[in-house]
Simulated assay, not measured.
Amino acid sequence: MAKLDGKIALVSGAAQGIGRAVAELFAEEGATVYAGDVKPVKPAKGIEALTLDVSRPDDWEKAVETILARHGKLDILVNNAGIVRAYEQLMETDLDAWNAVVAVNLTGSFLGIKAVLPAMRKAGKGSIVNFSSIWGSVGVAGAAAYNAAKGGVRNMTKNAAVTYAPENIRVNSVHPGLIRTPLVEAQPDDMNAGIIAQTPMGRMGTPREVANGCLFLASDDSSFITGSELVIDGGYLAQ
């Protein structure tokens, strides 16, 4: 039986990479998926496209209104949208770059949670999956804005988890390591090679491997799990 049969899901940053893999897997597992992105999203069986700039409250409101008007409920939110943009150390990080990274990675997740909570609270259930990172759990030399934003997502997830657990709304975070996505492939080869060299499994992960973790957290298989961190990193943080 499909794990998400009859569920309605909203996935941000779903035009490509991990977000697209999540949308496709959820649709395969029976969900109707609304795939939001600032880039064009290719519709497919079970996947509806939405324009969604996660840093804009109005975009979130329109997305949720559209879904509720069509289905009357929203069961799952995956806050996947993210950017790195600024690879500099803290002293060299431009304020505009800092604000942009925080706006997408941290504020975007905050706005997403706020947008879906009323419907989930009314239904008395829901699952929210927020994307943090291995860099949300430990420090890295450089990428100061990304490090800070993803650390914020990690603890915001725990805050929401303990706040809304009595209402049967589960909130968990996913912490990927180096995953073969367009964002990662655009990074310098020596940077990626250095991370792979420090990864016990000795390779990048795939978007589908991360999507499998999201499926577990979104489905009833994880019905007694909230406030948890699912690390998908080939063993990087185990060292």
Rank of each mutant, 00 (worst) to 15 (best):
Y87W: 13
K62M: 07
N80K: 07
L117A: 04
D58S: 14
R56N: 15
R56F: 01
L117V: 14
A63E: 10
W98S: 06
D75I: 03
F110L: 13
V104P: 05
A81Y: 03
V64D: 08
A97I: 13
W60C: 07
A81H: 03
W60F: 14
L117F: 09
L74T: 01
T107E: 08
A103P: 06
M91C: 06
L74V: 05
W60H: 02
K73G: 04
I113G: 06
N105K: 05
I83Y: 05
W60N: 01
P57T: 06
L74A: 09
G72F: 07
K114R: 15
K73V: 12
V64M: 03
A86Q: 05
V78M: 08
V78S: 11
P57I: 02
S109I: 03
A100E: 13
M91R: 08
Q89V: 12
I76L: 08
T107L: 11
I67F: 06
N99A: 02
R56Y: 00
A63C: 10
L77E: 05
L74R: 06
W98K: 08
M91K: 11
E65Y: 04
W60Q: 05
L111H: 04
G82Q: 09
S55N: 09
R56S: 11
W98P: 04
G72A: 07
D96M: 10
F110R: 00
A103I: 09
D75P: 00
G108Q: 10
I113E: 01
S55G: 15
K114P: 07
I67A: 06
R70D: 14
G82K: 09
N99C: 01
P118G: 04
A100G: 10
K62S: 14
E92I: 02
L68D: 08
L68S: 01
V116H: 04
A81V: 05
A103L: 06
L117K: 10
D59K: 08
I67H: 02
I67R: 08
A69E: 14
A97M: 15
D58C: 02
A86S: 15
V102R: 05
R70G: 07
N80W: 10
Y87R: 10
V84L: 12
L68H: 02
G108N: 13
I113C: 14
A69N: 11
D96T: 12
N80Q: 09
W60I: 07
E61A: 15
Y87K: 03
L90S: 14
Q89T: 11
D94M: 09
T93V: 10
A100T: 14
L111D: 10
A63R: 00
E65W: 07
A69T: 13
P57K: 08
N105L: 06
R56C: 04
N79L: 04
K73R: 15
H71W: 05
A100W: 00
R85Y: 12
R85A: 06
A115K: 11
W60K: 07
N79P: 04
R85E: 12
Q89H: 07
G112H: 13
T107K: 11
L106P: 02
N80V: 04
Q89E: 13
A81G: 11
I83T: 07
E65L: 01
H71K: 13
V104H: 02
D59V: 09
V84F: 12
G82H: 03
G108A: 13
V64G: 10
L90M: 14
G108C: 11
R85F: 13
P118W: 11
L117N: 11
R70H: 10
P118L: 03
